[in-house]
Each structure stands twice: as C-alpha cells, then as structure tokens.
C-alpha cells in the first residue's frame, strides 16, 4: 500500500514552473530516492509534501487520505538540505523543543531523546551548546530530531553531507532500521552511489518534470546497452569481420564488448570458443545510476540550457 501518492502536482512561481505536473507514489516501508540536478524542483516538491507550500494544482494523498498539513505533520519527519540549529541553545533543550513542536509531550520527548542519545553515544552532549559541536556532530543531532517522534514518513535531503564515513555508516544503519520497522524514507540527493546502495525505488525529476520512475534494478535493466566484459588468460588477436559484437575497449586481459542487436551472449562465447581462447570471466556491465542520471539530464534540452545558464551565473558570481 502506498503511504504517499502525488497526482498531477503543480507549483508555479512567478518566473518558473518549479513543479510541473508530477505524479508518483511511494510504498510504505520503502527507501525512495528523489533525484534531480540542482534547481530541478526537488525542494519545492518536498516542501509541498511537508505542508510548507500548498500545491497550485493536484492532490497529495497521505496514508490513504487527503493530505492535511496541520494534522499529518506529526507523522512526517523532515531534514531539509538547508538545515541548522539555534547556536546558543543547549543540545538537550534543543532536541526537546523540536520534539515538542512536533506534538510530543515533554515526558515522551524526554524518554525518546534519552533513548536516541544513548544509542548514538551522545549522552554526554546534553548540556553542550550547538556552537561547540563539529559539523558532523550537529548533523547527527539533526538526524535524531528528525526521526525522534517516530514519523511514518521521513524525508532526508542530502543527509550525509558533511559526515565522515564512520558517522555516515551509523546514520545509514539507522535508516535501514527505521525502514525495517515500517517507516518510509524519501531520500533526496545527487550522490548517485549512495542512491544505488540504499534505495529501492527512484524518481528522477528535471526542470520540474518527472523523467524517470522505477526500481533501481529495473531502471538499470532499462538502460543497459548490451555491454559485457570478457576476461581471458591471454587476449586473443582480433581480425576479420562478421563478429556478433564490437569491441569498445580493452583493459588488461579483458575486452569490453557491445553485442549486436540480433545476437546473444551465447553467440559471443561460441565465437571465442571457436578461436580456442581461454575465457576466465564473462560479466554483463550495467550502467551506473550516475551514467543514467547524466545521460537523462543532459538529454533534456531544457535542462541542458538550464545547466548552461547556471554555470554562467556561477562564473559571473565568482
């Protein structure tokens, strides 16, 4: 059952169509990747899901009913990309304050904070001030305050930025645990290797439109280009035409080949066996999400234009 369904969501600002007719659904308990280049409309989309913005058109269904920001906000935990804390406040009080704003009673909030602080080894932080924390430490605190009230839907925007590998792994493990317990996680990033590792399902948006929607496995299958890597004991010399493949490159003792449209991997193996080549390995090369991402984003002419103007702006700023 989907916990969140967006249908034909639109949000136009004066100068641009930030979100232009986007629909998708997120299954309960899944880890969902919301991907897109800078300025694609991810943040606007998330702000509508969290009730900060109202959509101009379209509908959001949350937990089977029409999304009601004031009532449903307690079931949502949102860690924005632009996030911070009150610098002069003590860590414990800060966590307590944010939990109470979510609607937890003081007693419940206290219990849960203590539990989380113990789990992430933050007990000694209670009376420290935020300004005394390192960036990684305050990220950890932000994560705790996001998930403290056990939300059904957790939205994390670039949750690993600024975290070292050790703390990244701690947070990653907690994300898995939350998903196992039934929480749904929407994960927004442009770090594809993390998406590949964590997410079940992804949606890619660019220039306010959805350009890709599917499971990570399926998407990779859809974009594969019949590429294989074949390892040999000794590279066979290649001459003559009429092979069932073309060679795209070679790396040490292996060829990278693309199989012609009407041929199968078996045809390739047969060909090399006939040549008496000793085959050590034969692997399909699936495209990385990174490659798919770049291909799709660059393929949409509007976004290419966007990226260009963006880089011009960057230059003029510098």
């Amino acid at each position: 059952m989907p916990i969140l369904e967006l249908s034909h969501l639109k949000k136009y600002f004066a100068s641009q169509k930030a979100v232009d007719d986007i629909s998708f659904s997120v299954d309960q308990g899944s880890i969902f990747g919301l991907l897109g280049p800078n300025g694609a409309g991810k943040t606007t989309l998330i702000r509508m899901i969290t009730g900060i913005f109202f959509p101009d058109e379209g509908e959001i269904t949350f937990n089977g009913r029409k999304f009601h920001p004031v009532n449903d906000v307690i079931h949502i935990g949102y860690m924005p990309e632009e996030r911070g804390l009150y610098k002069k406040m003590k860590i414990g009080e800060q966590a307590l304050y944010l939990a109470q704003l979510k609607g937890l009673s003081k007693k419940d909030a206290m219990e849960k904070i203590k539990e989380w602080f113990t789990r992430l080894e933050m007990q000694s932080w209670w009376n420290k001030k935020v300004e005394d924390l390192s960036k990684g430490m305050s990220q950890k605190l932000q994560f705790v305050t996001t998930v403290l009230h056990e939300p059904k839907l957790i939205i994390l925007d670039e949750p690993f930025s600024g975290l070292d590998p050790v703390n990244s792994n701690i947070i990653k493990d907690e994300i898995y645990k939350l998903a196992q317990k039934g929480s749904t996680i929407i994960f927004s990033t442009h770090r594809m290797e993390q998406v590949e590792e964590i997410c079940d399902h992804i949606v890619l948006i660019s220039k306010g439109k959805k350009i890709l929607d599917g499971s990570v496995k399926q998407v990779k299958q859809d974009f594969k280009e019949s590429l294989y890597s074949i390892g040999f004991e000794q590279l066979p010399s290649m001459n003559g035409s009429g092979t069932p493949f073309e060679i795209l490159g070679q790396k040490e003792q292996s060829y990278i080949v693309r199989i012609h449209q009407n041929n199968t991997p078996n045809d390739v193996l047969k060909y090399f066996l006939q040549q008496n080549a000793v085959i050590l390995s034969f692997n399909e090369i699936l495209p990385s999400l990174n490659e798919i991402f770049i291909k799709l984003v660059e393929g949409t002419s509007v976004s290419r234009q966007f990226l260009r103007t963006e880089s011009v702006q960057e230059k003029s700023k510098a």
């Binding site: 900060i52 004031v70 996030r83 009150y86 610098k87 944010l98 704003l101 932000q142």
Partner: peptide, 16 residues
C-alpha cells in the same frame, strides 16, 4: 538569526 542559522525550515515543517 533563524534564517541565517537555517533553523527556520526545520521549524516550519512542524508549525506554520
């Protein structure tokens, strides 16, 4: 201060 500390968006995901 709230805007520059980037706490504003965190808070207004809980309250109006």
């Amino acid at each position: 201060e709230e805007k520059m500390n980037r706490i504003a968006e965190v808070v207004i995901s809980s309250v109006k």
